[in-house]
Amino acid sequence: MKIDLTDTTASKINKALVQGRRALGTPAVGMVLTMVIVTDEENAYDSMKAAEDASHEHPSRTLVVIKRQARTPRDRTRSHLDAEVRVGADAGTGETVVLRLYGEVSDHADSVVLPLLLPDAPVVVWWPVDAPDNPAKDPLGALAQRRITDLYAVEDPQRVLQARVASYAPGDTDLAWTRLTPWRSMLAAALDQARTKIISAAVEAEAENPAAELLARWLEARLKVSVDRVVTAGPVVTAVRLGTDKGEIVIDRPEGPLATLTLPGQPSRTLALKVRATSELIAEELRRLDADEMYAIALRGGDGAEEGAAHV
C-alpha cells in the first residue's frame, strides 16, 4: 500500500503510517530499528531495494531522505516536504517513508526525521553515496548508533579513507570493510591451521581498491608485518599471500565465486568466496550495533595495533 503526501509534515506522515497499518490490519510491532537512508534520486531505488531485502532479517522502519535540487527561483524560496508512505508488501517486512526535501527544509533534515524515529529503538544511518566527511558530526549521523558509508561510491577512495581515519567515532563503519568479512574469516582459519610465524604479506587487487587497502592495514596491525600492495587486473581483491618459514599461505580468487586456499605442505582446496550483494552487506551490519573495533584498527593500520599482536 502506498500513500502520497504533498507539502506535508511529520505529524501527517505518522498519521498516514497508522492509517496504512489499520487498512492492512498490520500492527506496529516487530520492527527492531529505524534505518535512515540519505541518498539522491538516482540511487534511491537500489538503496531502498537493498534495505527492503535486509528487512526480512531485520524488520525496520526505513526513512529515505532525498534532498531535491531547486530547479526554479520559486523552488529555491519555497520550503516544503513531500512524502511517500509504503506499508505492507511495498515495504518488505517493515514500513518505508520516502522523504523529498525542498528549499530550506533540506538544511534541517534531522528535524524532519526525528519525529519519525521508532521510539526506544536503535537508529542506523546509511549514506550509499555522498557521505559527509565526518559522519558522527553530521546532524543525521548524530541521531544514530551506527553510521554506514561506502568507500566504493567515492571518486578518490584513498583521500576519503584518510579523512575517515581522522574523523572516526565508535559506531562508524564502511561497506568496503564489510565486504572483507569472508576474506578475514578464511585468513583466520588458515592461520589457525598453519600455526606458524608470518614473516611477509601481500594483498593483490585492482588499483585504488579501498577494501584492499583496509585489508592490508588490518593485516599490518594484527600480524605486525609490512604488507605489499600488488596491483592486478582485478576485479576487487584477487589474492592474499602470507609468507612463513614453511612456505606461503595463499588465498587466490582471480575471478568468479570460488577461491583456492593453499597451505604449506597441504593440497590446495577450493572454497566459496563470492562477491556479495549490497542487501547482504547491510544485513550483516545490522546484526551488531556496537562499535566495530576491528574496523577502527583497520583504519589506523599499524598505528592502531595492540602491542604484541601476533595473529589475526
Rank of each mutant, 00 (worst) to 15 (best):
P210G: 00
A305M: 09
L215Q: 02
T173A: 05
Q193A: 13
A166N: 12
T238Q: 00
S11A: 13
T181C: 11
A163S: 12
A277Q: 12
R100C: 06
I37S: 04
R21L: 14
L289N: 07
L214Q: 03
N14M: 11
S226C: 10
A176P: 05
L116T: 04
I66Y: 08
D90T: 10
T278M: 14
I199P: 08
A207V: 11
R229A: 15
K12R: 15
L118W: 02
K2G: 13
V113I: 03
L214N: 04
R61Y: 06
R147D: 06
L143E: 03
D150C: 08
D40E: 02
R222C: 04
P128K: 02
P135F: 03
R222K: 07
N14F: 08
T238K: 04
A83I: 04
M31S: 08
E220V: 06
I297T: 12
E84Q: 14
A221R: 04
K197Q: 15
A298G: 05
Y152T: 11
V98A: 06
A54C: 06
A54V: 08
V85C: 02
Y45P: 09
R22K: 14
A189R: 14
K274S: 15
T93E: 14
Q145Y: 13
P182F: 02
V18K: 15
T8N: 05
V312K: 04
I3M: 02
